[in-house]
Design a protein around this nucleic acid. Structure first.
Lengths: 154, 154
DNA sequence: TTACGTGCAAAATTTTTGCAGGGAT
DNA sequence: ATCCCTGCAAAAATTTTGCACGTAA
């Protein structure tokens, strides 16, 4: 966990008068550990259990809501009905996602032109570009070459 | 339903040897009726029930999978854990989405510059831009002005 | 001390599936 | 006649919640 993240969390907890408990600490450690960016609720649960086997799903989901609502975590859609979470916005607020339509491989990228143009479009349509995120779904190389990705049967 | 959509469906059914049954017909009519673009599984279920009260969720979900897999319907993420479907890709294959991070208002738009630049980025990162879709999440005007959207309590 | 937070377990949601019967080709 | 499709109902998967107890500030 970077100092930047640590501070954001501190600010949030101070602001809302939240208590820093062990269950929350464990979940935060799991969510913002630097290994592996995106995760699903269940993946985070596994990570957290590795840190403390007593981790409960109820608390995890409640913490997840807390973090998403306050902007420390972003929900991203990897397709296929999976809700994933992205803990990487604090360090890289301007990053976007390229997601394979088939195998859900995710690549994060930053692109100034894309960001600027996205801002223009967003503004033109009456939206505020703050916290704007851009997702592009396309076909990964494997899909393009072989016609299907690893996890797909046919 | 436009003739274009009708033909795409025909081709799909011919290609895969699918049978055009009444339950499927009803679901297709509901999905590709021109009123109201995006829908969730449940909203589609209501629409279909209005056409034929005997519509079953099982068949609806099975048909949904069919249509998504074959590209006639696209999944889009409106945030907040809702999976929505977009039937508008056949008529406007190059349209993108601007989605409010808070109230999930959706605006479809086309923008050549965005599309071209998106293609470049996609290609640069080793993806194939075919069927690429761009989603931008930002804050709608209500959210920006009042600090919260209609459906949000606080 | 005293709200706030936690965990269990039950409930609620949403989606998938086995199976026997029905229908399209 | 064959094999795909359907509907029911049960199961699965995911997320939320009531309640009594625990605990950080």
């Amino acid at each position: 966990m970077t100092p930047e993240v640590r501070e954001k969390i501190q600010v949030l907890f101070d602001l809302k008068g939240l208590r820093m408990t062990r269950p929350r600490q464990v979940i935060l450690d799991a969510a913002f550990s630097d290994q592996g960016a995106h995760f699903t609720a269940d993946e985070l649960f596994e990570k957290a259990k590795a840190l403390d086997s007593k981790t409960s799903r109820a608390t995890l989901y409640r913490t997840l809501v807390l973090l998403v609502d306050s902007g420390l975590l972003h929900e991203i859609d990897l397709g296929k009905g999976v809700t994933s979470y992205d803990p990487n916005f604090i360090d890289s607020p301007d990053h976007n996602h390229l997601i394979c339509m088939d195998c859900a491989e995710v690549i994060e990228f930053e692109d100034q032109h894309m960001s600027v143009l996205g801002d223009c479009v967003t503004r033109r349509l009456g939206f505020a570009p703050s916290n704007k995120t851009i997702q592009i779904k396309a076909k990964c190389e494997t899909l393009r070459r072989t016609g299907s990705c690893a996890h797909k049967a046919g």
